[in-house]
Nucleic acid binder design. Structure first.
Lengths: 133, 133
DNA sequence: CCGTATCCCGTAAGATACTG
DNA sequence: CAGTATCTTACGGGATACGG
């Protein structure tokens, strides 16, 4: 392997990395799951099906755009189902699939971890911020 | 409660939401954890301490900026420690704290979920993409 | 070797208005 | 009610060069 610039090495590393995650799709999915709205939507639905307006109310501050975008992505991945009832007005229900439920369990565990350890994190931050140097 | 515009209601909802996560800091931490680089760094360190250059090699494609930024944030939150050995050249080791290790366990579980269910996700995507309308 | 500092750009995502 | 369409803006994040 000849001499490479830092940029070339980084580029090559990225290509190898991309190739790697084709065989080991962990990082692809981790990427998808590392999304604020995904966590919130899945957590919200873990208590049972919800309508679009229910979700937009529960996940306060979410714009219709992001909510729809997130719901579509999760539907595509088989995490949740979208059920349209052609009444007037239209009614749409979102529910976790069994696949989604199993994921919700893990995200709930992370949520519980946050609840349990938030004080330690706060103390760590004060310690860190208070350190002069 | 008087009539509010959609914007006003959204604004108010966001304020309440912010107030809510002050008492229930779950979402704050979830936000922090919902980061691609956080997941990768914590996962990388779950096998033991690593030096800066080790991390930048293992987490292929990461720029020095993002790596440092992520490491500092996690250090501040007490997730990992940064140990400088004043040799020449300088040596810096990063290691998970017990707090970080407990988190790593959960993230590993999510990672395992991804590995287990990636095929289902792929099938779901093909089904979704193949659906004409 | 371990970063910091700077520039810069693409895009994620919020606000807003409108439709079936 | 359940979204779509459009504009705009902030900022995440990459490239690069340099300092301790």
């Amino acid at each position: 392997m000849p001499t490479l610039t830092a940029a070339q090495r980084r580029e090559q590393a990225r290509v190898e990395y991309d190739a790697f995650i084709k065989g080991c799709p962990t990082n692809q999915l981790l990427d998808r799951l590392s999304d604020k709205w995904v966590s919130l939507v899945v957590a919200a639905l873990s208590n049972g099906p919800m309508r679009y307006s229910d979700l937009s109310r529960k996940i306060a501050g979410v714009s219709p755009k992001m909510l729809t975008q997130t719901l579509r992505a999760l539907e595509r991945d088989g995490i949740l189902t979208r059920t349209v009832t052609p009444s007037v007005p239209v009614r749409v229900d979102y529910a976790l699939t069994p696949l989604g439920s199993s994921l919700a369990g893990l995200l709930t565990a992370v949520k519980a971890w946050a609840e349990t350890h938030i004080e330690e994190v706060h103390e760590a931050r004060e310690r860190y911020d208070g350190t002069p140097g």
